[in-house]
Nucleic acid binder design. Sequence first.
RNA 1: GGCCCCAUCGUCUAAGAGGCUAGGACACCGCUCUUUCAAGGCGGCAGUAGGGGUUCGAGUCCCCUUGGGGCCA
Length: 477
Amino acid sequence: MVRVRFAPSPTGYLHVGGARTALYNWLFARKNGGRFILRIEDTDRTRYVPGSVDDIMESLRWLGLVWDEGPYFQSARIQIYREHANLLLEKGHAYRCFCSPERLDELRKEQMARGLKPGYDRKCRSLPAEESSKLAKEGKPFVIRLKVPLDREIVFEDYLRGTIKVKGSELEDIILLKSDGFPTYHLANVVDDHLMGITHVMRADEWIPSTPYHIFMYEAFGWEAPVFAHLPVILAPDGKGKLSKRHGATSVLEFRKMGILPEALVNFLALLGWSPGGDREIISLEEMIELFDLRKVGKRGSVFDFNKLYWMNSYYIRNKDLKELLVLSKPFYQDAGIELQEKDDNTLLNILSLYRERVKTLSELPAVTKYFFTDDIEYDPEGLKKHLSSKEKFLLIREFTKTLVEIDSFTKERIEQKLREFATEKGVHPKELIHPIRILLTGKTIGPGLFELMEVLGREACIRKLERGISILENAN
RNA sequence: GGCCCCAUCGUCUAAGAGGCUAGGACACCGCUCUUUCAAGGCGGCAGUAGGGGUUCGAGUCCCCUUGGGGCCA
């Protein structure tokens, strides 16, 4: 049975790069009827950031990537790693190293000075077993290092990249267990992947250089290695290096705060490095499970294009069920300081039907629809200059406002009819009224069709806003 | 610097394991619809990094160069 895992370190929020790795793992598990496991690699206490674990789990849940097992915490499994380090010691594939940090430091300096590549000189590798045990019993601090094979190559098949070979002599005798008894990433990762029955390791390709160590450890333990598939990284929009904070949002929850829909983010992330083939662009999580094929995942890094994400998000927003959109939008109004009552639901529903195809993110909503909730409107100065600068125009609109009470049923059709009749009567083009009225009602020159807008606003609000606007602006002129 | 990975429009990508006039999407630019803005429709711009092979035929296979990225420092 297929078993995959997502194994983040709790060193901060969940980055979109990590989210995509999680997504591919999740898809692979779903596709193959396997299990998706969440493991928290928290053995490095110095890099631990409180709150990370909650952020990571919240992010995954929001994206819909629910795990089948876990979270397992490595910090609760320290004893297991120690035992396994000792196992390698017994098998002769690891050794105790008693070199002090001072010696290592000096060694490095000397190597640098001589223009050599810095690295451990394997001094303790040749320490006789009895000597090693004796020093350990005496309480001399030590680390446990991996005894990499110096005389051969380490070869493995990457599922995406094919054969990768590295000469053993290029490798270092990396530390497996630190002097405080805590495991390094390499040890804990390999031990856990084996013990947890992981069949496929999908991780970022920055791990390619450490994979030979992992392969050798599997050999040394006498275990069968899982299949490795190293996923390409996500690059910054400038194409230089990995996507990081300075390029804008990178955390999953940050995108949620911006009003990105989870299905949009998932869809976008999925297509960053993978394509189902053909021209498919909009794909739901369910369809992805059907279509996903690890073989079709690309090898090269992909640039994170915010534009495309926004486009995709706007697509999902305008195709979203209005009632669902209502629930999703409310928090954004809350954050913007607009208090909504239960009775506002209907209005908001109507507002959303007017605006869902005009916004790219949910967070834009409060600002552009604020005029529904207040008469205190900021009028666009450019718009005023263009559409509402003459005395006559004010008079005309004031007169039109009075006719609004005559409309028997305040629907967009009847309002339009009324306005067009009025315009004809006065010998002006309907535009001459439409533009200034939109500004008076909304403060803006752009927005939904005027008549549907007025219908949603309602007769009273329209009259009130028009009169108020005219009196303020006339005096200001 | 050493080792490793990668290479199709500006960006994301397609071209089932050689047959192509190199397809789609985002962005951009026109036109259209229209009361503005969106959305929609129609159209345009734009790419196989360079050089050698293999082959009747190469984006697809091999080598070199160049460029980008990662890891170790």
